[in-house]
Write a protein that binds this DNA or RNA. Structure first.
Lengths: 208, 208
DNA sequence: ACCATACCTTGCCTGCCGCGCAAAATTGCG
DNA sequence: CGCAATTTTGCGCGGCAGGCAAGGTATGGT
C-alpha cells in the first residue's frame, strides 16, 4: 500500500509522527478543557513545535482533531482491500467495518485509548465547530472506500454511480450506528449495531 | 407547518428576508469572484447591513453559503410529510426528493436561478473551505428527514436506528446522484440519476 | 392611540487565526 | 565531510468571530 510507514525514509517517518502527535494532542486538550479553551498555540506547545509549524500540518484546530477520525476511517478501506476477492461484497464490507469498531472488547474496563477515542468522537459530533470537519473527513475516507469497492466490483468510480453510492451509504450506516451507540444509556456493545445497520442496508431498508 | 412566512409578524418576515438575501449574496459573490476574494464585509455591504449584523445571522462565510443548500434540503423533508400516509415509503421518498431536483425541466435554456444554483453547489463541493459546512447542512436536513420518516413508519428517532439510517442513506444517495450529475460531461437530466440511486438503495445495493 | 417592552441593529474592541515570506536549522546523500 | 533539499521557525498582515453596550424599531396590552 502506498502509505506504509516502513522504509520511507526517516524524514517522512518523523513527519508522520509529528502529525499524529499534534492530532492526538488536539483531541486530548479539547476533550479535557473544552474546545475553545484550547488555542492552536497550546497544541503546538504540547508537542514541542512552534505555533507556525502547527499550521504547516493542519490548517485549523478542527482539522487537526478530525484527522484522528480520518486516519481511523481510512483503515476500513484498507481492510476491505485486504479481504479475499472471492468473499461476497457485503460480507467483506461488514468484516472490514467491524475491525475498526472493536471497542470495549477486551477485559472489564475498556482500554484507555478507547476511552479517549470515544470522548473524541463525542466531541466531534456535539461541537458545531467540529461537525463539519468530521463529516469532511468521513467523506474523504469514503472516497478511498469507493475506490476499493470499484476494484472489487469491476466498476469505475469516475463513470459509475455504484461505488460512490455504496461508499456513501455505508458511511451513513456506520455514522448512524455510532451515534446510536453513543446515545445508548445502558451502554451496549457496538458490533451488533454495526452489523444490524449494514444488514438492513443490504436488505433494502425495508420498513420494520 | 411551523416555518411558514405568513402572519408571523413583520419583524420575523424581515429577518427571514435578510437571512436569505445575505445567503444569496454570499453565493453569488463567491461564485463570480472566487471564495477568498470575498470578505464577509462585502457580503454585508451587498445586502446593505452592517458587517456586525452579518455575524448575527451567520457565524461564517461558509455557513452563509451553505444556508442556501440547507433551506433547499429541508424542503425535501417537508415534501415527504406532505405525501399521503398511504403511499409506500420508498415511493414517497422518491417523489419528495424529485421535487427538489427539477432542474432544467422548463423550456430550452435552463432557468437562470437554476444556473446560479448549480454553480453554487459546484463551489460548495469543490472548495475545501465549504465542503464541511455543506455536509453539515446536509446532516441537519437529514435530521428533519429522519423525523418525517419516523412519523410515517411509527418509529422513534431517539430510540430506533431505522429512521436515522434511512435518512442518512437517502442523503448519501442524493449526494452521489448530484455529484454524478455535475460530473457528466455531455450533460444528462438529473431525475433519472436520482431515481436510479434510490431504486438501488431500496433494492439493497446489489452488485451490478 | 399610546406607551412600555422586547428585540434587532450597529459600532467598537479584543483576541485569535491562517498564511505568505524569508532566514535558519536539520537531515539525507554522494 | 560537505552540499542540496526540505523542514522548522519568526515575523507580520489582513481578516474573522463574537462580547458588550447604546440606539432605534416593531409589538402587544390597555
Amino acid at each position: 500500500m502506498g502509505t506504509d510507514d516502513e522504509s520511507l525514509g526517516l524524514r517522512e517517518r518523523k513527519k508522520r509522527e509529528t502529525r499524529v502527535a499534534l492530532s492526538w494532542a488536539a483531541v486530548r486538550l479539547a476533550v479535557e478543557r473544552g474546545l475553545d479553551n484550547v488555542r492552536s498555540e497550546d497544541i503546538a506547545a504540547e508537542v514541542g513545535v512552534s505555533p507556525r509549524t502547527f499550521n504547516n500540518y493542519f490548517s485549523s484546530k478542527a482539522e487537526a482533531i478530525a484527522a484522528r477520525h480520518l486516519d481511523r476511517a481510512r483503515l476500513i478501506a484498507a481492510e476491505l482491500r485486504a479481504r479475499p476477492a472471492s468473499e461476497p461484497l457485503w460480507e467483506a464490507i461488514t468484516t472490514a467495518a467491524l475491525t475498526q469498531f472493536a471497542f470495549g472488547r477486551e477485559a472489564a474496563g475498556a482500554a484507555p485509548p478507547d476511552q479517549a477515542w470515544t470522548a473524541g468522537v463525542r466531541l466531534m459530533i456535539s461541537e458545531p465547530a467540529l461537525q463539519g470537519e468530521f463529516l469532511k473527513a468521513s467523506a474523504a475516507a469514503e472516497d478511498e472506500f469507493a475506490a476499493a469497492i470499484a476494484e472489487r466490483t469491476g466498476t469505475d468510480p469516475e463513470r459509475d454511480l455504484y461505488p460512490r453510492l455504496v461508499a456513501g451509504a455505508v458511511g451513513a450506516a456506520l455514522r448512524a450506528a455510532s451515534e446510536q451507540w453513543l446515545r445508548a444509556d445502558p451502554p451496549v456493545p457496538i458490533a451488533p449495531l454495526v452489523r444490524d445497520a449494514l444488514r438492513q442496508l443490504a436488505a433494502g431498508l425495508p420498513v420494520p
